[in-house]
């Protein structure tokens, strides 16, 4: 235990014994569980986990069932991160006092939460965890909407997306505000590691999760989680949509070390137009009307500008 699990290739990875179980109630094709599996399977160490209220929590802890083969706690919407932080503090205290029964085990503390629970309602709690320096990882399952309660907009919802509280219709093209840059905000806490990951790039994901678990101090991970129900695409296409997200650079993959040193970790060989990413999802369907096409152009410009910015950051090493 406690040495980094060797995962050279996918065949080797497939010998993992999952600690997340089926017959949970997540929708067919839900990316939340693909992400959770990749995170949990990145280590063989013990796991102390939490989930904030949201699809993942609601669907994996349906009384009298659990889908988790690990210590797992749920309290509320806002405080999954602090629940894990509390467990981590207790663990540290017991270790210092020499009261751990198996002090050689090296558990990993991970909290999972949706974008609603992270970008909005649990924001202050996560910020506290990062600032206090807990040895934990917070993973956002970022489906850019409050999926569990029927698709309300969050501060992660991108411009033009139709949601139930920002619906597209005669007077509106849907969400009017741009997605909040949560990775930058978390990195600004000066934490040792923050990163964006996507389940299609499993190797990049495993590398980042393993690094995050080894590093001393708080880690923030933002994982794109395409939602078949709210993004309105066929469940079989979850990985295709994820590919379009990473390859159009709508969701760039990068890491920030010690709050400043930025590395781009994936450069698509063929960059896909943002339009293609949007066309594959019902939540953007209305933008293809003539009157709203300028929004697609603006999206492309924003994505290009962000990519140029990330490249400048990487080059400058600041």
């Amino acid at each position: 235990m406690s040495e980094i699990k060797k995962i050279k290739n996918l065949k080797e990875f497939s010998t993992s014994a999952d600690r997340f179980e089926g017959a949970n109630l997540l929708c067919p094709g839900c990316a939340h569980s693909i992400i959770v599996r990749e995170v949990l399977n990145a280590t063989n160490d013990d796991l102390i986990l939490s989930a904030s209220t949201g699809c993942l929590e609601v669907c994996t802890a349906v009384y009298p069932y659990t889908s988790w083969d690990a210590s797992w706690i749920h309290i509320g919407f806002e405080n999954g991160s602090t629940a894990v932080a509390g467990a981590e503090s207790m663990y540290k205290a017991l270790k210092t006092k020499g009261r751990l029964k198996q002090p050689d085990r090296n558990p990993k503390f991970v909290s999972f939460a949706g974008d609603g629970a992270s970008y909005d309602i649990g924001f202050q709690w996560i910020s506290g965890c990062m600032e206090r320096g807990h040895n934990m990882m917070h993973v956002v399952l970022d489906n850019e909407v409050y999926a569990n309660t029927g698709g309300q907009r969050s501060s992660s919802t991108p411009i033009g997306s139709s949601t139930t509280t920002a619906p597209a219709g005669r007077v509106s093209y849907g969400e009017q505000k741009n997605k909040k840059d949560m990775v930058a905000i978390m990195a600004a806490h000066g934490i040792p590691y923050s990163a964006q990951v996507a389940p299609n790039k499993w190797k990049d994901m495993v590398k980042k999760i393993q690094h995050g678990m080894e590093v001393e101090g708080p880690v923030f991970i933002n994982a794109i989680s395409p939602c078949t129900t709210e993004w309105k695409f066929d469940p079989k296409d979850t990985m295709h949509i994820t590919d379009l997200a990473t390859d159009s650079l709508v969701f760039p993959l990068y890491e920030i070390i010690d709050g400043h040193e930025l590395n781009i970790t994936y450069r698509p060989k063929d960059i896909v137009p943002v339009e293609e990413y949007m066309a594959a999802q019902g939540r953007f369907k209305h933008l293809f009307k003539d009157e709203y096409k300028y929004l697609i152009k603006e999206w492309q410009e924003r994505v290009d500008a962000k990519w140029a910015y990330l490249n400048r950051r990487e080059e400058a090493r600041v």
Binding site: D18, A23, P28
Partner: peptide
């Protein structure tokens, strides 16, 4: 093992 890694339902 693509099917193994991307199956959401283990």
């Amino acid at each position: 093992q693509f099917c193994w890694i991307y199956c959401p339902d283990i």
